[in-house]
């Protein structure tokens, strides 16, 4: 199949994967369009990494079908590997090779035609040209992450699968990283990126939220927020934790979360929530206001609503 003929860079239906009696990926279907940055969110152990591995042919699904760049994820994993850049969650380059040797090895594995120039160019754009002969193991987390991105980009893949690429990376490096991702997306490269950071989620064109192996919501940030139909009130003042405990027991309050100086109370029943918040705040030195429900409110809500089905017969 010709990749350009397909509408989506990734198009998978009803993927399932079990490890023993754990149903790690449960009926996951998603589509990533060309040139789209698709954010993959969910708590630890929710099946993000496994889903990504299923999509690039590193794992075989128990059931389900799909294509990645138009190639069948089960039968054509060799072609997928050639055209996809996969950045593993854990740094997976060789610590006992130098930066140049690592890049050179990867370039050779992909049979790159003008290997030397490609590697030199990658080193320069990384800003690592002067440290090319340093052992990779001596690099800091941020540099390792940049090297990993450069290495998985080396063979000019049309699709990037990035598994928590910014975990443990400082804010500046994270910002640079996302700017780079947007530049790549503008060139037509599709990106599937898993993350825990809300600010990163907001930078994605589309999002999917996965918990306990199930895809709970997907779409743009707005669509995801709207899908849960929550109303949220913010309460500013002192002793918010205490108030949070109190609110949680009241009718109409589905969730309370403390964000620094503000307490967010969210609920599906708009009228009941408003009543509860006003009742709780009555006679106290608190400022209350209705606010737009944020992504984080929604994610916490979805997470608490999804049941843990690990270890259950499925």
């Amino acid at each position: 199949m010709n990749p350009s003929a397909t509408e989506y860079a990734i198009d998978v239906q009803k993927l399932n994967k079990h490890f023993g009696d754990k149903h790690v990926v449960n009926d996951v279907s998603l589509q990533v369009a060309h040139g789209e940055i698709f954010g993959f969110l969910g708590p630890n152990g929710s099946g993000k990494t496994t889903s990504i591995r299923l999509m690039c042919g590193l794992l075989t699904p128990d059931s389900g079908t799909g294509t990645c760049l138009g190639y069948d994820i089960i039968r054509e994993s060799a072609q997928i590997k050639r055209n996809v850049g996969y950045m593993t969650q854990r740094f997976s380059y060789w610590d006992d090779l130098t930066i140049r040797e690592n890049l050179d090895f990867i370039a050779r594995l992909y049979d790159m035609p003008n290997r030397r120039e490609t590697v030199d160019h990658a080193l320069e754009s990384l800003g690592l040209a002067s440290r090319a002969d340093q052992l990779t193991g001596a690099l800091s987390g941020g540099w390792k992450q940049r090297l990993a991105l450069a290495a998985c980009m080396l063979h000019k893949p049309k699709l990037l699968l990035l598994d928590e690429p910014t975990a443990g990376v400082d804010p500046t490096a994270r910002r640079d990283f996302w700017e780079e991702l947007h530049r790549l997306a503008a060139q037509g490269i599709s990106v599937l990126v898993s993350t825990h950071y809300m600010d990163e989620a907001e930078r994605c064109h589309k999002l999917a939220y996965i918990a306990y192996g199930k895809l709970i919501a997907q779409g743009t940030a707005k669509e995801v927020i709207d899908s849960q139909d929550l109303t949220t009130w913010a309460i500013h003042g002192d002793r918010l934790s205490e108030l949070s405990e109190q609110l949680r027991t009241m009718p109409g309050v589905d969730q309370t979360v403390v964000f620094g100086s503000a307490l967010h109370a969210s609920g599906k029943d708009h009228a009941a929530l408003e009543k509860a918040v006003q009742q709780a705040a009555a006679g106290k030195d608190l400022r209350i206001e209705p606010i737009d429900t944020g992504l984080e409110d929604v994610f916490i809500y979805m997470m608490s609503r999804s049941s843990d089905n690990y270890g259950m017969p499925s």
Binding site: L58, Y86, R90, S92, W94, D95
Partner: peptide, 13 residues
């Protein structure tokens, strides 16, 4: 053990 196998498996080697 070092996790580099995943990387090797993801390449065409």
């Amino acid at each position: 053990e070092r996790g580099t196998m995943e990387n090797l498996l993801a390449t065409p080697v």
